[in-house]
C-alpha cells in the first residue's frame, strides 16, 4: 500500500472544484424534487381523474427503474426530440425527477397524517380549495415530513456521483480524471470516498435530531 500525501495535496484543488459541482447539483436537484414531488402528491390526492392515473403510472415507473438508465435516456433521447440541455441541467433534471417520485410519497404520508377535522374545519370556514391547501394542510404536513425529506437529500447526495457518466465533473468525475492523468488512483478515490462519509454522517445525525424534535 502506497499512500502519497503530496498526491492528496495535488488533488485538493480539483477536489474542491468537484465538491462545488456536487453540492450545486444536490441543491438544485433537491429543490426540483421537493417541488415536483409536491405537485405529484397534490395531483394524486385531488387532481382530476384523467390526470391522476398517468401521474400515478409515471411516478411508479420512474421509482422502479434505475436512475443511471434514466440519466442516459435524458442525455441521449432529449436531443433527438430537439431539446438540447447542458450535462449539468440534464443531471439535475434526472436527480430531481427520480427523487420527486420518493418525495411525493413522503408528502402523501404527511398529508394523510393531517387529521380529517382540519379539512372539515377548513370547509366549515368556507376556505377555498387553494387556501385550504396552502394555509391549513401543507404547513402541517411539511413540518411532519421535514426529516424524511432531509433523509432523501442524503440519499440523493450518494447518487450524485452517477451524473459523471453524462460528463458532469463532480467529485467522482474529478477523481477519475485526476487518476487517469497522474495514476494516483488510490489517493483520489479514497479522498472522495471519505468526503462522502464526512458529509453524510453529520447530515444524518442532524436529521435524526430533527426527527426527534418534530415527530412525536
Amino acid at each position: 500500500m502506497t499512500w502519497d500525501w503530496s498526491a492528496v495535496a495535488d488533488f485538493m484543488p480539483r477536489f474542491f472544484e468537484g465538491l462545488l459541482v456536487t453540492l450545486q447539483a444536490l441543491v438544485l436537484g433537491a429543490l426540483l424534487a421537493f417541488a415536483l414531488g409536491l405537485v405529484w402528491a397534490i395531483v394524486l390526492r385531488s387532481g382530476p381523474k384523467p390526470v391522476r392515473w398517468p401521474v400515478a403510472a409515471i411516478t411508479e415507473f420512474v421509482r422502479n427503474t434505475p436512475l443511471l438508465v434514466q440519466l442516459f435516456f435524458l442525455y441521449y433521447v432529449l436531443p433527438e426530440w430537439g431539446i438540447t440541455l447542458s450535462a449539468m441541467v440534464t443531471g439535475v433534471i434526472g436527480l430531481g425527477l427520480h427523487y420527486s417520485t420518493y418525495t411525493s410519497e413522503v408528502y402523501r404520508a404527511g398529508i394523510d397524517g393531517v387529521p380529517k377535522g382540519q379539512w372539515e374545519a377548513a370547509t366549515a370556514l368556507n376556505l377555498s380549495r387553494a387556501r385550504t391547501w396552502s394555509s391549513v394542510i401543507l404547513p402541517q404536513a411539511i413540518r411532519r415530513v421535514a426529516p424524511a425529506l432531509g433523509n432523501y437529500v442524503i440519499a440523493m447526495l450518494k447518487d450524485t456521483p452517477m451524473i459523471f457518466v453524462i460528463g458532469v465533473m463532480e467529485m467522482l468525475g474529478q477523481a477519475r480524471q485526476f487518476a487517469s492523468e497522474t495514476f494516483l488512483t488510490v489517493e483520489a478515490f479514497t479522498v472522495v470516498g471519505i468526503a462522502f462519509i464526512l458529509i453524510a454522517y453529520p447530515a444524518s445525525v442532524l436529521m435524526r435530531a430533527l426527527e426527534r424534535r418534530l415527530v412525536r
Binding site: 500500500m1 502506497t2 499512500w3 447526495l157 450518494k158 447518487d159 450524485t160 456521483p161 452517477m162 467522482l172 477523481a175 477519475r176 487518476a179 488512483t185 488510490v186 478515490f189 479514497t190 472522495v192 470516498g193 462522502f196 462519509i197 464526512l198 458529509i199 453524510a200 454522517y201 444524518s204
Partner: peptide, 24 residues
Amino acid sequence: FEVFRGTSALILMFWIFFVLPLGF
C-alpha cells in the same frame, strides 16, 4: 452501519475496482 450508509455505492464500487488492486 454508519460508514456504509454514508458511502455512495458507486464510489465504493470504484474503490473496490481500482483501489483494492493497487493499494492492497
